[in-house]
């Protein structure tokens, strides 16, 4: 399992796509927002938590289709399926690797982008916490979506349609936690809900993803 994780990480670093593209996309979306809604500081600081969360979510979505596609094309996915490691474990590792290459950098970069949007000072801690707790769920849900569409030629767009509705609860609770943090309200409840969703996703979705993979490899 560790070996697979290392391999995936090495591939992502060598290809350069995982870290760079997602972060750049995150930055661009956040920069575009003031152009759209105007530069007033009050407006920006009001919508900053939501924008940061939505942008992080879209950036995570961007690299999802490569989770299994590369392995599927070069034929290593059937090999992984026949290896002693259960397919559920493979899905779990793939989700974790995706988080380390996209979710983690996004989380770390988010506070810096918060300055651009004039976010309330009290919200930074909550932003970091909620993204750190929430983005793993995004990665795992995305892994499931990628497993569903791995065999399709143009699965990327379809996968977005399938995955985005599944992101709704995570987004709601995550953005709500930051929103409350910004307003100086206690934000523990939505944060706990985010953590719960993440844990639930990692406990259950590997099975669903593995089932989908088995069907696609049949």
């Amino acid at each position: 399992m560790i070996a697979l994780l290392k391999r995936d990480l090495a591939l992502a670093v060598r290809a350069g796509g995982g870290f760079g593209l997602g972060l750049a996309f995150f930055l661009i979306v956040v920069v575009l927002v003031p152009f759209g809604v105007g530069p007033e500081a009050a407006v920006l600081s009001r919508i900053a938590p939501g924008i940061l969360w939505v942008a992080a979510l879209l950036a995570a979505l961007l690299s999802l289709d490569r989770i299994f596609a590369l392995d599927f094309e070069d034929g290593s996915l059937p090999l992984l399926a026949t290896s002693p490691l259960p397919l559920e474990g493979v899905a779990l590792i793939k989700g974790a690797a995706h988080w380390i290459t996209t979710g983690l950098p996004l989380t770390l970069a988010a506070p810096a982008l918060g300055f651009l949007l004039n976010m309330a000072p009290g919200a930074y801690l909550w932003l970091l916490l909620s993204l750190a707790l929430g983005t793993p769920a995004l990665s795992m849900i995305g892994t499931f979506g990628a497993a569903l569409t791995v065999g399709l030629r143009r699965g990327g767009l379809l996968m977005s349609l399938l995955v985005l509705p599944l992101y709704v609860p995570t987004l709601i609770f995550g953005a709500e936690a930051v929103q409350r943090g910004a307003a100086g309200l206690p934000a523990t409840t939505p944060l706990l809900m985010v953590a719960g969703i993440t844990l639930g996703c990692y406990a259950l979705l590997p099975f669903a993803a593995a089932a989908a993979l088995r069907v696609n490899l049949r």
């Binding site: 569903l148 509705p165 599944l166 609860p169 939505p190 809900m193 669903a208 989908a212 069907v215 696609n216």
Partner: peptide, 26 residues
């Protein structure tokens, strides 16, 4: 394949639909 995958999606989607319902209320 389509039947299998949509069935899995339907089950996962149901869980998330219920979750969304409560999240939205919150």
């Amino acid at each position: 394949t389509a039947a299998d995958l949509t069935s899995v999606l339907c089950i996962v989607g149901s869980v998330f639909a219920v979750l969304s319902r409560y999240a939205v209320r919150f």
